[in-house]
Design a protein around this nucleic acid. Structure first.
Length: 350
DNA sequence: AATTCGGGGGC
DNA sequence: GCCCCAGAATT
């Protein structure tokens, strides 16, 4: 549904509102590329509130791109642990190393940003508009929702045709020379006013232009196809402790879930006996279950399933070998540990 | 075009 | 419980 084009007053009103009501965020205090780049990567599929404490800690640990480039990957992942989507951290450091090798010079336009690992169409556009002043629309979830509403676009928001239509409508009103502010203003509008389920249309600066509001059902936009319910999956976890009370952890392969993080040996399934070969493979040593009773049980929600982790005490027949296993203090691992495994470690008796 | 990647906030 | 979040990479 093409609809009429948006009026340029929409952009003016949004920019005016942003100047007065935009969120004061730490990466907005300056426009240095490192800060904005780091924030954009952390904010991929992650809310501002969740990012803030990580952003501060990460900046303290790695103050600039050369520090990040020179750091051991294990240190980077330790600072990232708990934030999720760990490929972001691996790609971030790979990109930092490219930038450092280029004399510390950051990309100068959208195409150059896009060529760095971990930077897709959205992030490249966001960085080019904010850092380089390029006139491009950065179509994130917020702009998608606000755009679908003000144009009353009833196409499936997942369909490329719908996204292209919304991007085109917004591009037509993009204020030249102010794309960075316009993009961020639309994000703030989506995050604080044009909320997914309970939009605050009464305080919206562009309510007079909103065609979704005019239909009387703004929440009906954007249109999104239903998703299947998440399945529940069971996992067995082995807790191997040494005489010093430390626990055995294994490094996950770089690809796949929790890539590069350190985890307790675990395997999918409900029963210890069935899981044992996989557990021993991960632990790099033969194992015996210490007790039939579980030490801890943790549930953890992922995007596509809910994991139920049942931890059992286990004994190692001999010292494990290999560079991908090590002993850590379960209270202070000192390496990156994913949330459900960290929760199990914290639940262990001293 | 579909899947895989985490984790948490907010209702 | 459920939806959504400043998405990217892989298949």
């Amino acid at each position: 549904m093409p609809g009429e084009s948006l009026r340029p007053e929409v952009a003016e009103a949004v920019l005016h509102w942003y100047a007065a009501a935009g969120r004061p965020l730490p990466w907005r205090t300056s426009l240095d590329p490192y800060s904005v780049w780091l924030s954009e990567i952390m904010l991929q599929q992650t809310s501002v509130k969740a990012v803030l404490p990580y952003y501060r800690r990460f900046r303290a640990a790695f103050p600039d791109v050369s520090a990040l480039a020179a750091a051991p990957l294990d240190d980077v992942l330790r600072e990232w642990a708990g934030l999720g989507y760990y490929a972001r951290a691996r790609n971030l450091q790979a990109a930092a190393q490219r930038i450092a090798a280029n004399g510390g010079r950051f990309p100068a336009d959208r195409a150059a940003w896009r060529a760095l690992p971990g930077i897709g169409e959205y992030t490249a556009a966001a960085l080019a508009s904010i850092v380089n002043g390029e006139d491009v629309i950065a179509l994130d979830g917020n702009l998608m929702r606000v755009g679908a509403r003000i144009t009353a676009d009833d196409g499936d928001i997942e369909a490329p045709s719908t996204r292209n239509r919304i991007a085109g409508a917004l591009r037509a009103i993009l204020p030249h020379g102010h794309a960075g502010d316009f993009n961020q203003a639309m994000m703030d509008l989506g995050a604080t006013v044009c909320l997914p389920r309970a939009p605050r249309c009464d305080v919206c600066p562009i309510r007079d232009f909103c065609r979704a509001l005019a239909t009387g059902a703004p929440v009906a936009f954007p249109v999104r196809s239903a998703k299947p319910a998440r399945a529940r999956r069971d996992f067995v976890v082995a807790v191997v402790r040494n005489d010093a009370g430390r626990v055995l952890v294994a490094r996950q392969p770089d690809r796949g879930i929790w890539g590069g993080l350190w985890v307790l040996p675990f395997a999918e399934g409900r029963r210890w006996a069935a899981a044992l070969p996989a557990l021993e493979e991960m632990a790099a040593t033969p194992l015996d279950r210490g007790s039939a009773r579980s030490l801890a049980r943790v549930e953890h929600g992922f995007t596509h399933f809910i994991g139920r982790y049942t931890a059992y005490a286990a004994m190692s027949a001999r010292a494990p070998r290999g560079h991908r296993v090590r002993w850590v203090d379960p209270r202070v691992p000192g390496v990156g540990v994913p949330v459900p495994h960290a929760r199990i470690m914290r639940a262990l008796p001293r």
